[in-house]
Design a binder for these strands. Structure first.
Lengths: 93, 93
DNA sequence: CGGCTATTTCGCCGATCACCGAAATAGGGC
DNA sequence: GCCCTATTTCGGTGATCGGCGAAATAGCCG
């Protein structure tokens, strides 16, 4: 569960997730959106994969990344739940 | 805005925020909940303060920390918004 | 003032991180 | 087989991070 916090902590990775919200993209396609070397992005993909926030599909030499919306959704819900937002601070109302 | 991600990225700081959800606490009181040295906790307080997630009130030699619920709430809402969770992925429905 | 308590500031250290270029892996086309 | 493209793995580097003990700051009390 903690890998998700790690994944969300980096701005580049958050941006990647936002890009994938629009549509699935290949590794190179994603990389073209950044001013970073391919190996750097590849490392970010690995972190997102470990957090299960994205899944990959190989087709020939290209790898297409897809956002795992439900995992992201549940992670943010769990985060809100952890802070019990929306509930009262009182123990005995 | 990015200081908030940094603040939330560390488990100790998340735990501090959860403790402060219950009630405001002095620095020493918070520290007694962890197996960490006071200077370490003091550093965490500084990060939370920079993110404006907590505010402090000085009274004598003790400093009481209070959770800034609205900032945390808005930050998590902004996070959900950033990923547009709850909306469709389609541009033209 | 001197001592006690609460908290922070000040180096310092080891671990982790983001980043890169170069090399390795793998598939497709000729 | 050989080249070209796509992507990852491999070392290495500089920056940031979380942790600590020691010292500094500040208020209270006798």
């Amino acid at each position: 569960m903690s890998e998700i916090y790690r994944a969300l902590a980096d701005p580049t990775r958050r941006r990647i997730l936002q890009l994938l919200r629009e549509r699935e993209m290949t590794a190179g396609e994603i990389a073209s959106n950044f001013d970073l070397a391919k190996p750097t992005l590849s490392g970010h993909f690995a972190v997102l994969r470990e957090a299960k926030l994205v899944s990959q599909e190989k087709s020939g030499t290209t790898i297409t990344y897809r956002l795992n919306v439900s995992v992201l959704e549940e992670a943010l819900m769990a985060l809100m739940d952890g802070f019990r937002l929306g509930e009262s601070r009182e123990k005995k109302p």
